[in-house]
Write a protein that binds this DNA or RNA. Structure first.
Lengths: 230, 230
DNA sequence: CTAATTCGAGAGCAGTGCTCTTGACAGGTC
DNA sequence: GACCTGTCAAGAGCACTGCTCTCGAATTAG
């Protein structure tokens, strides 16, 4: 079986090489990835790629899934590196990590959070890793609740239907989380996504030279909204 | 000049027809718009399209610009329909109008606020209409400041570099606007964009059946952040 | 009526994703 | 060593794309 494993090893290396080249092309050409161009870079015929990936969409899906995992890893690692009781520090670290990853991997971020490709539908494998960054933020709020550092926002403002919907989500994803607090955590995630997208997709332009500070301030506003103590 | 105007009229109608068909294709096929398919639908040769639009990107640019104008019109009209002193009502109306337009024109919204096409760079004509929705929101805060209904947030939390950057923006776009308030208005716009994008691009899925109410609540949170009185 | 302009159609080029067939190579078996 | 068997790369080919160019027809201007 040595020979077999040799074959398998070569195959695995080939797959890695294809993904690496594809990622490189992604950075320059965006989502319209050309299999033929990748094949050219690898010095092989375009048809040979199909030995490793059944279709172009399949290659893209693999890249997307790995990108989700990479982003999730980055955010969770940043959160884990901070003292558990330093809620605000964890919030900042997580958000900054997401932004840093997006700035370093703009093409892949656009693939994850940009407009979806028309024919393409994301496989179910992506919904779990896609939920990791928002779950990290919500986890910070939940920990604050558990330690008493954080007092839940009033639920009076919450319409009953939303209250019920959020209670269902909390029941399956974050047991014990009050609906009103969950809503604010999700607002924080929405804001984070919006901030990164605006910065990456060029809405802000040169109008805001101190982008790091602006980002921090906007993130701080959301930390206040969630109720993280200073 | 009757004859001339006839030719010109036919030409204008032809342009409108091309744009209409292209918009229809956009809704189903997304950003990868096919000139040949549009030509087929119109019963003409693909090369004939080039008599009216110098390139595919040019057609897309026209569509994008008109979409910006349509969205801006919708938001401003919704704001204008509410009593000037009802700040919160104006905020809700503007945000809801943006969401309604996006839901009714998902493909065009994706074109405006989705991931940018790699080679494509937006012309300068788009930056003014693109700024209309956020300017509407900021205008509401500014009116509140003028009438005394709204008290500006403390500027102490604002780092000096951000303070300066925002002051520059305010000076050219919204004179008299305190930097801290401008930051919160922009946070509202960011949140609005994020909410709509998440809903359109399918991150929320079926987990939140009462999307209207959820949207309203999240928008209300931002209205509170800006300081709009209840 | 003639000359100039505008327009549509067709052919053609280079590129794309993808399929199918052909031939070369390595693995294990007799 | 000879012989299958599975794996792989390459090439040809199909249908599609954006775009250019040329040619003939129609329309407008003088």
């Amino acid at each position: 079986m040595v020979a077999n494993s040799l074959r398998a090893r070569v195959r695995a290396e080939m797959i890695d090489e294809i993904k690496a080249v594809a990622r490189r092309h992604l950075a320059t050409d965006g989502a319209n990835l050309s299999l033929r161009a990748v094949a050219r870079d690898l010095g092989m015929a375009s048809s040979a790629i199909y030995r490793y990936f059944p279709s172009r969409d399949d290659l893209l899906t693999t890249l997307i899934l790995e990108a989700y995992v990479a982003l999730g890893d980055a955010v969770e690692a940043a959160d884990a590196a901070v003292d558990r009781d330093d809620l605000r520090g964890r919030w900042f670290a997580s958000c900054r990590a997401a932004r840093a990853w997006a700035l370093a991997n703009t093409a892949e971020y656009a693939l994850l959070y940009g407009s979806p490709v028309p024919g393409y539908t994301a496989p179910d494998d992506t919904i779990e890793p896609a939920a990791r960054p928002p779950m990290t933020l919500i986890g910070i709020a939940r920990d604050g609740l558990a330690t008493g550092q954080l007092t839940p926002p009033p639920a009076a403002d919450l319409p009953q239907p939303v209250q019920d919907d959020l209670a269902d989500i909390a029941a399956s994803l974050a047991p014990g989380m009050p609906a009103a607090l969950l809503a604010r955590g999700m607002a924080g995630w929405t804001q984070l996504f919006g901030l990164i997208s605006f910065e990456l997709f060029g809405r802000i332009k040169g109008a805001l030279p101190h982008r790091d500070d602006y980002f921090d301030h906007q993130i701080a506003l959301m930390a206040d909204l969630v109720g993280l103590p200073r």
